[in-house]
Write a protein that binds this DNA or RNA. Structure first.
Lengths: 204, 204
DNA sequence: TTATGAACAGGACAATCACCCTGTTTTGGA
DNA sequence: TCCAAAACAGGGTGATTGTCCTGTTCATAA
């Protein structure tokens, strides 16, 4: 303890980020209950004191992962791409394709981050459930808003925005669930194709 | 221990069934990792020795729940109703409606038994994953077979059986996932309606 | 410089967990 | 009737867990 006299550098944001990184990773790979704080401490190379300083309880850590990481993944994967797409249909198709490409490249399916935590934690704690539900809501709203924008531009006649949005989220969530269980990303492409052709025509 | 001298009645099947009942219930309500064997023992009113006699490990208990209970729920809810329905479309619509009715009557959403366990256990253990995947497969096959039967009868032209089956399972799984997180069964009805009207016509 | 609180270290703690072990009772066939 | 195996009882155990506690070090403002 006296030989390697390296000074300790206080880096609250960095340490918090490292903990969140490893917690998110382990929560997704092994689940919340199967992840011990010892696992997180070891992976992030932080002490118990530091972990407890930033996240008083395991629940607080999970809430931070949900609000700061899972929500961000949904925004980055769905909300933002949709905003800059030519149409809902095109945007949705593009997201499905992008995700399927990534899954094929990495060779395994870890599942949808939101659904993974939602299934394990929704019934366990109301605080978890409410926050997870609001992320689902934000996801659906992004799609529904895009439908309405298309309708303002003269397209998507006869499409119910909320119903379409819920169905897209459901289809994606379920397809990813199956892909995870079967470890087969082709199920995602299969469902994407169904969405395309059920449009009833040659929409962009 | 001497006053109430009631004889012990050996009832292996009954005891095994009671354990399975409570294990299934708790696995669904709280999850596998959040359920302790002590919980199951207390709920089923069995001793540690008895539990360990029928299920050597917690994993063995979970495998039994998956194969004897979860698989049965899928068969009872989906496979059998589909077999006796007039058409795929009618059968699928009927299942969605039946489940939604039940959810509204009971007032809360516990989620799809298969998806609940699949999300928590698929990545944890390959034995779990393979068996859960085969239940998904059986589910999809029941739908695809019914599509092919309809096609033999002259209907469902242009419908890809496997693709349609995967999409129905995905839509249902995802809708149930959202309904569970939001504790709102109307999302199930919303997605069911989308499935109806995307059929493109007035099919039976 | 100094002082105050945040940032971090590291061990202790009680509770819980899955599993195992030994012993007893019941069952069914020889 | 007898006996071997199945069925069950119930306590024990080592390992793990989340949390807490007491110190020590760093950063920042006065």
């Amino acid at each position: 303890m006296q030989s390697n006299r390296q000074k300790r550098t206080n880096d609250p944001e960095g340490m918090r980020r490292r903990v969140l990184d490893k917690a998110e990773e382990s929560f997704q790979a092994r689940g919340f209950h199967a992840t011990s704080l010892g696992d997180v401490m070891a992976a992030a190379a932080v002490t118990g004191g530091a972990l407890h300083h930033h996240f008083p309880t395991k629940k607080a850590l999970a809430l931070a992962v949900i609000e700061e990481r899972v929500a961000e993944v949904v925004r980055r994967t769905w909300v933002e791409p949709l905003r800059s797409s030519a149409s809902v249909r095109a945007g949705v198709r593009q997201v499905f394709a992008t995700v399927a490409d990534r899954l094929e490249r990495q060779g395994f399916v870890r599942g949808c981050p939101l659904n993974n935590l939602a299934h394990e934690l929704s019934l366990a704690d109301s605080d978890f459930r409410v926050r997870l539900a609001s992320i689902f809501k934000e996801w659906r709203s992004a799609i529904a808003d895009k439908v309405r924008a298309d309708q303002q531009a003269g397209g998507e006649a006869g499409t119910d925005p909320e119903r379409f949005a819920a169905s897209v989220v459901a289809l994606y969530s379920g397809a990813m669930s199956m892909a995870k269980t079967a470890q087969d990303s082709s199920l995602l492409r299969l469902c994407a194709k169904e969405l395309d052709e059920s449009a009833g025509g040659v929409l962009n």
